[in-house]
Structures are given as structure tokens and as C-alpha cells.
Write a protein that binds this DNA or RNA. Structure first.
Lengths: 111, 111
DNA sequence: CATTCATACAACCATACGGTTGCATGTCAG
DNA sequence: CTGACATGCAACCGTATGGTTGTATGAATG
């Protein structure tokens, strides 16, 4: 199961443009933290922290290759977040159809 | 279009269990801020702030009814967030199929 | 083994966030 | 008009976050 703090971490991790971009770049994989850092106007350490946040949220994994740390995005994490949003929409659809039923019933009562 | 700061606000808003619960409750609509507040172990003002955060992220809207402020969730906002996650998965699928192609080509070269 | 490159990690700073209380405003009931 | 109720908003407080710099570790290279 996915606990609430887990969900917190996933959405919080995605609430930063730099981190979203890291996720996007790391889909292709192959870049180390240092290479990733070159894309952004901030220090290596800052990018390292962003990767750590994504890792805690299980949105990326790190894999040691020689002295480099290659970052890979974990699509399962993304899917978990998406399915949560799906659930809300599911709820909403349910409510709409119930409302439609209600309206239909009313019409039938009126008729 | 949806700008990066907008996306920031949406994910940041969803990164809190109380706010996610407000979104869920407000799908049904009908509850005012005060009524919502009774569900949580915090002050009215705190809930009011949470609603404000959700409103800035366009995840809910407020509608005045007499002296009450009824909160409704805006499913469009949820859908926008979900479609963003879909895009990442789309990218990922693309990368996989490209990798598959590559492997296929290699096999053919080997054969 | 000394050097260098990539990463890790701690300390520090400014700002943002989640909560509180207190007070002001606006709307309904008598 | 008064009082009560629901909301809005500002000030304040502790902690988390996003950035910095500096130092330490570990792996490849000459």
C-alpha cells in the first residue's frame, strides 16, 4: 500500500520545476549527477539535494557506474501518483452519474 | 497553456494529506469552510488557509451562499495534473520502444 | 601512491509553510 | 439596530525547504 506520507513526498517532489526536469531527463538515463547539474543554474550540491528528494519519493533510483552515479526515473512512482488522481476523477464521475440519476428520477416523478 | 509556476502550485497543493482530503470531500460539494473544518484537528483559520492554497492552484472554487462559502473541487485542475504525469509516461514508453528497436537492430546485425 | 574527478555530507542562511490567536467584516434573525 | 454566526485577514512562531560553501570519501589514472 501507499501511505499518506509517501504520497506527500511524491507530490512535494513534483512541485519543483527543476526536479520535474530531472525526472524528464532521467527517463533517458545515462546522465550522472554532475552531468545533470550542468543543465541548471545552480550548484552541484543543490542538484544533488534535488535528486535525493526524488529518490526519497521513489521517483528516481541511482546506480553506481565506476565513479559516476547514474540517475534513472522510476516510472512506477509516476504511475502511483497518476492513479491517485484517477481515483479523484473516478469519485467525481460517480457523483455526476448519481446526480444524473437523481435528475432522471425527479423528471419521472414530475411526469 | 499551463505555466511552470501553475504546475508547481498544483503539485504543492496536493502534497498535503489534509488538502487532498478537502479535495475529496469537496467533490460532493455542499460543505462550507466551517463545516469542512469540523473534520480536522485544527483551527478554522488553518482550514481556511488550506482552501486558499487549493483555490490558488485552481483545484477548488468557492461559491458564496448566504453567509456560507461553499467549496467545490474543480476536476479540470486534477485532469491537468494527471495529463502531465501521462506525458512523462508517454516519454518513457517512447524511450522503451526506441530501445527495443535498437536491440532488434542489433540482433539483426548479429544475425 | 599521488592526483584528480564524481559524489557525499555537514553547516549555515534566507525564505516559505503550517499552524496558532486575535480582530475586522458581512450577512442573517429577531 | 443588535446580536450572533461564518468568513477574511494579519501578526506571530517553529520548522522545513532551497540554496550556498567547505570538507571528506572513493574510484580511476599516471
Amino acid at each position: 500500500m501507499t501511505t499518506a506520507p509517501d504520497v506527500d513526498r511524491v507530490f512535494a517532489a513534483l512541485a519543483d520545476a527543476t526536479r520535474r526536469d530531472i525526472v524528464r531527463r532521467a527517463i533517458g538515463g545515462g546522465e550522472g549527477i554532475g552531468e545533470l547539474a550542468e543543465h541548471y543554474p545552480m550548484s552541484f550540491a543543490a542538484v544533488q539535494k534535488h535528486v535525493a528528494v526524488l529518490e526519497r519519493a521513489r521517483l528516481v533510483t541511482k546506480e553506481r557506474t565506476g565513479r559516476r552515479m547514474v540517475v534513472h526515473t522510476n516510472v512506477e512512482g509516476l504511475r502511483a501518483a497518476r492513479s491517485l488522481l484517477d481515483q479523484y476523477e473516478e469519485l467525481w464521475r460517480g457523483r455526476i452519474s448519481r446526480m444524473t440519476e437523481l435528475l432522471t428520477d425527479k423528471k419521472e416523478t414530475d411526469a
